[in-house]
Design a binder for these strands. Structure first.
Lengths: 128, 128
DNA sequence: TTTTGATAGTCTATTTTGTAGACCTATGGC
DNA sequence: GCCATAGGTCTACAAAATAGACTATCAAAA
């Protein structure tokens, strides 16, 4: 989580900085859901399904801070809030789509690997 | 973390499954470090810098399970263990590189967004 | 009139994760 | 004999995520 706990005096490494942001379990999923039209808070909650309100809230706030999404509050009752991708956010979806395509193409290989996996023999570690 | 807690009877969604795997704070960094030559456990530990032994161990084990890396134990003393990318792992670096390139290109925009960000006014929420 | 419902969150108690650091094996060097 | 090394594991503690209650406001249902 710290962008760099270890000897880092200059600006944070861009790669590390960005990976830390998107590599947090939910951001990618949220960005993915935001594709196309803007979404409301509860819509995202339902679409993603197994995210908690708190995490969705935090994730959106961070994405907003970092300029990936905008948050628009309509002063209605009950209140309506819409989240939409910014240009930066949209541009991010391009490389991310490559990743999603890779996932689709290689999911089978992963599942197969999981099945044929046998845990390593670390007998030199465990005195028996 | 669950691949799908909510109504999911069929096979897990490939996207979700893969994103869950790589979206875990360390996997991407580890794969990135593994680029080029194989690495030993402590090399990775030093290169990444702020990962704990336990998390590196867990991450590598999962990457191995999923067929992204191989683990080779040389029966020497002290023991030597080398981690290397499989073909699957290498192929994953292609889309990931796109992402890294995006990160480099857009890091400035993100930093800028962070600076100009002002927290939302949720006064309708908080009675004062 | 009181109740219910909807929205977008926040707050809190509990569970899950991650961290730091001690510890384990065997051997070689001093 | 004692320390160092490599690759982990184990444990006690700290940090983070979860579920569910709770907030406000107004409209419609009962």
């Amino acid at each position: 989580m710290p962008l760099s706990k270890s000897l880092n005096f200059e600006q944070p490494c861009p790669i590390r900085d960005v990976l830390d942001r998107i590599g947090d379990q939910w951001s990618l999923l949220v960005l993915h859901s935001l594709q196309g039209e803007p979404r409301r808070f509860n819509e995202l909650l339902r679409e993603i399904g197994d995210i908690s309100k708190q995490m969705l809230s935090k994730t959106l706030k961070r994405l907003e801070q970092d300029g990936f999404v905008t948050r628009t509050l309509y002063a209605e009752v009950p209140p309506r809030v819409e989240y939409a991708l910014t240009e930066l956010g949209s541009s991010f979806l391009v490389p991310m789509q490559q990743l999603v395509d890779w996932a689709k193409a290689n999911h089978g290989g992963i599942v197969e690997a999981r099945q044929t996996y046998t845990p390593a023999d670390n007998s030199w570690q465990q005195p028996r």
